[in-house]
Amino acid sequence: MAQHQVNYTQDGGLPVALTSVDKIVNWGRSNSLWAMTYGLACCGIEMMASGASRYDFDRFGTIFRASPRQSDLMIVAGTLTKKHAEFIKRLYDQMPEPRWVISMGSCANTGGMFNTYATVQGVDRVIPVDLYLPGCAPRPETLQYAVMMLQKKIRSEKAGKSQRQKRLV
């Protein structure tokens, strides 16, 4: 039987750690960002690479889910066409709150090089975006950095207070 030695003179004499509710809730939220698989174009390839073994998103707690009902984060990776716009809104509405959106790549940010009739000129015309990630396409390291920045943002939010409803309209 292993012998555990507890130093009762340290940490107030008890084997506990004290924290605030905000901190522990945000710790939980930011370290288990389950992302929705939303590869729309070539950025999707980079997003897949980020999730695969070399870049390994799992160590940030970011696990890709195939259902919007199980995800906290939507990474819009690629060109959003006008035909598809209503579906991205529908999937966003199916995600439980609190939810976050990363707009990945130039096409998702502003329409990018597709300055045409069929492309939505930025996903922020359809859903509210928390973080814009520039690049064409951003490398997996950049996406990792974006997720880390989003984690930083989540940690700075007040968890106890009900979140401001993110709405475009």
């Binding site: 006008k82 716009a85 209503e86 329409g111 300055n115 045409t116 009739y117 015309r125 359809v126 475009l168």
Partner: peptide
């Protein structure tokens, strides 16, 4: 090439309705 009036508001009209044009703004 960049679409006519209907095309430029397509996704806004389709999702939010014409009333939301003022809020979301032109492309």
């Amino acid at each position: 090439l960049q679409g006519d009036e209907a095309a430029s508001w397509y996704e806004v009209d389709r999702i939010y309705g014409k009333e939301a044009r003022d809020i979301i703004g032109p492309e």
